[in-house]
Design a protein around this nucleic acid. Structure first.
Lengths: 250, 250
DNA sequence: CCTATATGCTCCACATTATGAAACTTTCTT
DNA sequence: AAGAAAGTTTCATAATGTGGAGCATATAGG
């Protein structure tokens, strides 16, 4: 279904761009002539996937995308339960907390609660980050079997900061540790100066795990307290949704 | 672009359905054989427009839709300014307030603030309602020229409640009144027992108007007070975004 | 002010690409 | 356990999207 594949890439470009995108830009990124790109975007516009600014002729997200997205719910999770958990984590610690899901080898940020610390740390909602460099990412991966993770990643991994794991073997080792502890750590692996703890729950009725994390300045040495708070919250939620990981030994 | 047209209809069905949808249902609604429907949905799934529940095999909104939708902003409007206006309207009156935009002859609900009245009145976000039966709808229409409105609607209109206008001429008359007053009314035209006042702002940098409304029980006779509050709020916002309608006579 | 360059859009002959009946598989239903 | 219903795969066929050329409009530079 070539047309839909092109549409997917075009819409991904638009979803990632903070500013409206030109037809020429879409054409370049897709390797399509301007005529084809123009036709594709006009069709997406008519379908209201995207909206075209009549002045600049550039394209941004459209109403249908918004309507569809407004109904997106990670299947099988109680949105309120997780949202309250997120709020509580941020309010108690004062740090920024995230809720995220896996998307292939990346994590996508679903929600964010900003902290109260002087140095605010925040990224855009919907943003995609490499799972192997983030705490939530590794926590989410730790809920998948090792052989699946091995198939997902190349042997060498993309380097974000100097602290990012460079190869799959190291990542797998770190994920095994996270599995034992019940939470994952990111020591400035995604953002310099930022340390994060992340965990995940996997509902019995759900078909994928959901991750939560707290990010804080690297200077602070409170990892113990924070990870304790995180795991206790996750255990509470995990028991409520019947996650075998949290109802069991952990 | 046939494939995209089919995709649009399929995704609209999913966006409107509160529950995940089956391939058979999509096929029926599109007039496609099951094979084509299956292939289409599989492709949309691979593009992450939709997600397939592995158990029921039914489809619901996907991550890409959410990511795109999260970036949707009615071009040229200050989201915070409007959101505050909405909150304030609900808090002062205690009634449910809506923010909506036009989508052909319908209105789409973008935001909603629930009131404090004992009988809560609410609908789902993203829901589509006929513009000719709602207060926001008529307020939005009143910002378009009469000849455009005439082209948009058939001569006879769909009947929601007994109070709904049955033909275009009556609607146009009502819209002209709204244009003069600065606000539109819906007297139980969309929902029995519910009266609503609606208004709209149209920013100079925007390419379409945005509407706000307040809904309250038909028993109450406070239309004067409520419409006064609404118009004063709209004038405030309208002046700030340079809407000629509000900076001028109104 | 006129030329130069870039972007967006429409046309149309052509070949890639989606289509749908049939067969096969899986999942409910009785 | 048999039958029905829903989902997926296959493959010959035909419909559908492709991209070069040409036109229109917009932005930039001399």
């Amino acid at each position: 279904m070539k047309t839909l594949d092109n549409a997917t890439v075009a819409l991904t470009i638009i979803a990632e761009s903070p500013e409206p995108v030109s037809v020429a830009e879409i054409g370049k990124r897709l390797g399509l002539p301007r005529s084809s790109a123009s036709r594709l975007m006009a069709s997406l516009r008519d379908g209201r996937f995207v909206e075209q600014d009549p002045n600049t002729r550039r394209y941004g997200p459209g109403l249908l995308a918004w309507q569809l997205g407004a109904r997106y719910r990670p299947v099988g999770y109680d949105a309120d339960l997780l949202a309250q958990c997120l709020t509580s984590l941020s309010q108690v610690t004062g740090f920024t907390s995230w809720m995220a899901v896996l998307d292939r080898t990346n994590v996508v940020l679903l929600r964010q609660h900003l902290g109260r610390t002087p140095a605010q740390f925040s990224v855009r909602l919907g943003q995609t980050l490499p799972s192997h460099a983030t705490a939530v990412g590794k926590a989410l991966l730790s809920r998948l079997p090792d052989n699946v993770i091995e198939m997902m990643f190349e042997e060498t991994l993309s380097q974000g900061t100097p602290q990012t794991f460079g190869n799959r073997a190291e990542l797998l080792e770190d994920i095994r540790t996270a599995r034992e502890r019940g939470f994952a750590l990111s020591r400035q692996e995604a953002f310099p100066g930022v340390v994060a703890v992340g965990g995940a729950v996997f509902g019995t009725t759900a078909n994928f795990p959901i991750g939560l994390s707290l990010s804080f300045p690297a200077q602070l040495g409170e990892i113990g307290n924070i990870s304790g708070l995180l795991t206790s919250e996750l255990r509470r939620v995990g028991c409520e949704i019947g996650d075998p990981f949290w109802t069991g030994s952990h």
